[in-house]
Simulated assay, not measured.
Amino acid sequence: MSGPIPDIAGLKAQARRLRERLARSGSDPGHAAVLELIARHHGYRDWNTLRAVVGKRTDAPVATGERVRGTYLSHPFEGVVVTVQAVSLGWFRIRLKLDQAVDVVASEHFSGWRKQVTAVVDSNGVTAEATSDGEPHLRLESG
């Protein structure tokens, strides 16, 4: 298995490229066989299983390069999405580069400033992890 799994169009494009590469080397296993190879490459037993999983996948709440705002550890922020990666059905690891550093320490005796943060969010842009007062670690604002 290698990296995040593309959408159906991306998977079919992978299959087309693989079939062209195999044809240039003198072998043409056929379209259906290549789809099965793509499925196994991504860790699934067959194309139908992979297609079913990808078809149920929820879209990420943000895209790479998108400007976002929200709260991180209850501090408001604005920034840019550096990376987005699906980690499981409906959950995405995102890395944000913040316009202004955020103090992630709740002590008056010292500070810990962060300009980049990474979190796993759901399709609404909210983390499952929360602070002691119940606020999500990260919440992206919509719109």
Rank of each mutant, 00 (worst) to 15 (best):
A33D: 06
R67H: 10
S74R: 07
I8C: 02
L11N: 04
S111F: 14
H75C: 06
T127A: 05
G43I: 11
E66T: 10
E135Q: 11
H31Y: 01
A63T: 10
S111D: 09
S142R: 12
D103N: 15
R45V: 12
K56P: 01
G143D: 08
S88Y: 03
T64Y: 06
D28Y: 02
K56F: 09
V82N: 09
L37E: 10
R17K: 11
Q14I: 09
R17Q: 09
V68I: 12
G43N: 02
T83M: 06
G43M: 10
S74G: 03
L140F: 05
D7E: 12
L140C: 04
E66S: 08
K56V: 00
L37T: 13
P76C: 15
Q100E: 05
E129G: 09
L96Y: 00
R69M: 08
G55R: 08
R67I: 01
S107T: 11
H109R: 15
G30W: 00
L98A: 14
T58S: 14
D133A: 13
G134T: 04
A33S: 04
V126C: 13
S88Q: 08
T127E: 01
N124A: 15
E66Q: 15
V81A: 02
L37Q: 13
A32N: 14
V120Y: 06
R16T: 11
T118A: 12
D28N: 10
A63K: 13
S2C: 04
E20C: 03
V105I: 09
T131C: 08
V84L: 05
D28E: 01
S107D: 07
V87W: 04
A15D: 02
T71L: 01
R57Y: 05
H41R: 14
R114F: 10
I38M: 02
P4S: 15
E108L: 11
V62F: 00
E129I: 04
G134D: 01
L98I: 08
R69S: 14
G43W: 14
I5F: 12
E78F: 15
R114L: 13
V126K: 11
E135A: 08
V34T: 08
T118Y: 02
W113R: 15
P29T: 11
S123D: 09
A86I: 00
A130R: 07
A60H: 06
H75R: 14
V34I: 04
G10V: 03
T131S: 13
H137D: 03
L138K: 02
G143W: 14
P76M: 14
S27L: 09
V81C: 05
G10A: 03
P29F: 13
L18T: 06
P61Q: 12
K12Q: 04
R67M: 01
H75V: 02
A15N: 06
V34N: 07
V126F: 05
V54L: 00
A63F: 03
G143L: 08
D133V: 14
T49N: 02
S132K: 15
V82W: 11
R40E: 03
H41Q: 08
